[in-house]
Structure formats: structure tokens, C-alpha cells
């Protein structure tokens, strides 16, 4: 069936776009955290500029999915694939916004070298692992990876609480750096939000496979 073949092709095209957007969002996180550690304002500016491209990719995924729904009237798993692509794309776009916010913090700090401890980078590492896992879960429609994401999100949440506690103690002894400390606290929060969006993606993969709604953030 030529028509069905074309539909499959376009459906896979949407999936590829989502996976590509996930890869770009991951890179944005790496670059934004790097710009924070290196106090690299130029790099941070590039992250902010690149975010526009990611917004466009999200829009493009939405358009492709809506056109396919309008023209092919998909049902059952085909319809879920498209709905899930739209939802995941939204989460990825918001993840990228968080990376943009980290880059803004880097710019706010304005290139001052002040030495951030390893904890933020550790959070970032877990978030990156989660992104890889989310891409794998989505590509392979694998529920096991999706469930693992919820566990990793709990780890990030715990790390975030520890970072905040550390920063709070820092404000007591290092009052003149409070502006810097706040920016670090914001950035930790932005990374923590990555985890929440990735858990949403896990829920969507489970919905895609099982056709049932799950609450992994609960």
C-alpha cells in the first residue's frame, strides 16, 4: 500500500525530529552548565541564541503531527505516536528553556571566576543520563527505561535539596557573594526541572506503549 507506506515514512520522520530535538536539548544543557563553570559569557550567549532554533524545531514537530492527523486521521497506536510526539516535544522545548535560563545566570554572574563546587556538575551528569535513557525509551518504546527515569528523577531531587542546603550555609558565611549564590541556586533548580520534564517523557512513553495514563511524578 503506497499511501500507508508514505504515512509510515512521515510518522518516522516526526519521531526522528523529536529524537533530534532531544539531542539538541541535551547539548544545550551541557553548554549552559559549561558556560557557568567556565564563566564563559560568549558561550552562554550562544546557548541563548541557539534556543530560538530549538523553539522552531518544536513548532515544526507540532505542525508535522497536526498535518498528519488532519490528513490521515490516524487511530489507536498511530494516533498515540503523534500525540506523544507533540507532548514530548513540548517537554524538550521547556528543557531547552531551562538551559537558556542557566546561560542567563552565567551572563548575570558576568564572567567572574568564583569556583563552583562539583555538586552542580554531578546533578547535570544525572540529567544527561536521564536524557539518554529517555531517548532510548522513546526510540525503542521501552517501558523499563521509562520506569528507570522516575528513579533517577528522585536522585536529582535529592541532590538538589543537598545543593540548596549547602548554598544556604554559604550565605551565612559569605554574605557578600549572595548574588552569585542565588544564581547557582537558580541553576540547580533549572537542572532539577530537567528531571521533571524527563519524567513526563517517561509517562508519555508508557502511554504510547500501554495506552494508559501513569503518574510517575507522584
Amino acid at each position: 500500500m503506497v499511501v500507508r507506506g508514505q504515512f509510515e515514512l512521515e510518522l518516522n520522520g516526526v519521531k526522528k525530529q523529536v529524537v533530534e530535538l532531544a539531542g539538541r536539548a541535551k547539548q544545550q544543557l551541557v553548554d549552559s552548565v559549561q558556560s557557568l563553570y567556565d564563566a564563559d559569557v560568549e558561550m552562554a550567549a550562544r546557548v541563548i541564541e541557539t534556543d530560538k532554533k530549538l523553539d522552531e524545531m518544536d513548532l515544526s514537530i507540532n505542525e508535522s503531527a497536526i498535518l498528519l492527523i488532519a490528513r490521515q486521521q490516524p487511530v489507536a497506536s498511530d494516533l498515540r505516536k503523534l500525540i506523544v510526539a507533540i507532548r514530548i516535544s513540548t517537554d524538550l522545548e521547556r528543557m531547552a528553556d531551562n538551559a537558556k535560563n542557566i546561560a542567563r545566570s552565567a551572563i548575570h554572574i558576568g564572567g567572574k571566576q568564583f569556583g563552583i563546587d562539583q555538586s552542580l556538575a554531578d546533578m547535570c551528569d544525572v540529567a544527561l543520563r536521564m536524557i539518554d535513557l529517555a531517548i532510548e525509551a522513546y526510540e525503542k518504546e521501552d517501558i523499563k527505561s521509562a520506569k528507570k527515569l522516575a528513579e533517577l528523577d528522585d536522585i536529582i531531587d535529592g541532590m538538589y535539596a543537598n545543593v540548596l542546603q549547602g548554598l544556604l550555609e554559604e550565605t551565612a558565611t559569605n554574605a557578600e557573594s549572595i548574588q552569585l549564590i542565588m544564581q547557582i541556586a537558580f541553576s540547580a533548580r533549572y537542572i532539577e526541572r530537567f528531571g521533571d520534564h524527563l519524567t513526563n517523557i517517561a509517562e508519555n512513553v508508557m502511554y504510547l506503549v500501554k495506552g494508559e495514563t501513569f503518574d510517575l511524578n507522584g
Binding site: I155, T199, E212, T213, F214, N217
Partner: peptide
């Protein structure tokens, strides 16, 4: 810090109206 809340939630299927 690693709570078990979400592990419990894994089987929390939401029944829609």
C-alpha cells in the same frame, strides 16, 4: 534522600472518567 515514593507510583495507573 532517594525516596521510594515514585517507585510506589510506578503502578499508579490513572483511571480516566
Amino acid at each position: 534522600m532517594h525516596s521510594v515514593i515514585s517507585v510506589k507510583a510506578l503502578n499508579k495507573k490513572i483511571v480516566t472518567s
